[in-house]
């Protein structure tokens, strides 16, 4: 569709490309470059000292650990939701389908506020869960729960189109060859979904690692216990420790870049398989 010939026919090649480049340069490249510049002005020893404090290590562990657990849970929930929404017809399906996107449309501060009140000891859920010893507010569990909510749409929306375009003959063939329904789903359908599952998983993970708004409301932000890495950056900034903040930000930025490259690679693989 996009061809070399278009450049000679359609107008606006120069204008659109140069505007896009300029916009991205001013808004994205320059600010991120400022972070790297500030980080590179530190000596290696200073940098390591800033990013590898016990408090920072605890924060990374929580940020990456909670995001990982939440992404795994979202893969499970996403499989269930995508399967039901694509394969079954039932009353209220449309409403259920549109609700999937709510975590994406709801401001994160609202999500954090309401989740912390729901699972607080006197909240709607907390009054039942806290006596059982389940503290899903102001705890590490709270971070996982709210990240599950935030990441919910990603796996579902990555799976739906793949599940819809799956060739029915695959399952017919499996059934003809005597496979039970369970074996068919587990050994034939699910393997076809692996790339989409992986993409959804990586997207959820990326979102979880960067998430700040909802987590600060629910976690309680106790150092060494429920403090996430982005919160640590904000703390350092408020104490005007720009160097330390920048160093920790560089670690997060590196993680974001790595994930973005993985996601892009996965999507390109999928596009190649599709054609």
């Amino acid at each position: 569709m996009a061809s070399l010939a278009n450049r000679r026919v359609l107008p606006g090649f120069r204008m659109s490309v140069s505007f896009t480049l300029m916009y991205l340069a001013v808004l994205i490249v320059v600010p991120l470059f400022a972070v790297l510049l500030r980080a590179s002005s530190m000596t290696t020893a200073d940098f390591v000292r800033a990013v590898w404090t016990p408090q920072a290590r605890a924060a990374y562990a929580l940020t990456f650990g909670a995001s990982l657990i939440a992404a795994v849970i979202d893969v499970g929930l996403g499989l269930l939701l995508a399967w039901v929404l694509v394969r079954y017809d039932f009353p209220g399906k449309r409403i259920l389908d549109s609700l999937i996107d709510l975590p994406f449309a709801l401001p994160t501060a609202v999500a954090g506020l309401v989740y912390s009140s729901l699972y607080a000891p006197k909240g709607w859920m907390g009054q039942f869960l806290v006596p059982l010893g389940i503290h899903a507010a102001y705890s590490r569990l709270a971070v996982v729960v709210v990240l599950v909510f935030i990441g919910l749409p990603f796996v579902v929306r990555a799976l739906e189109p793949v599940l819809e375009s799956l060739d029915p003959e695959l399952e017919e063939a499996a059934a003809c060859l005597g496979a039970s329904r369970w074996t068919t789903v587990w050994c034939v359908v699910i393997p076809h979904l692996y790339p989409a599952i992986l993409t959804g998983f990586a997207l959820t993970l990326a979102r979880g690692i960067g998430e700040y708004g909802s987590v600060v409301f629910v976690s309680g932000n106790k150092p060494f216990q429920t403090e996430i890495a982005p919160y640590l950056i904000v703390q350092k900034l408020e104490a005007f420790q720009y160097k330390e903040a920048t160093a920790i930000a560089t670690v997060l930025l590196a993680a974001s870049f790595a994930l973005l490259i993985v996601i892009n690679f996965l999507e390109r693989q999928r596009a190649r398989h599709a054609t």
């Binding site: 950056i233 930000a249 973005l260 996601i263």
Partner: peptide, 23 residues
């Protein structure tokens, strides 16, 4: 270019804030 457009999805909002403060 396409990857760069996706970048804001992956970068933590706090890091974005920090970047603009450094500028």
């Amino acid at each position: 270019l396409t990857t760069m457009i996706d970048l804001p999805f992956a970068v933590s909002a706090v890091v974005v804030g920090l970047a603009f403060m450094l500028l």
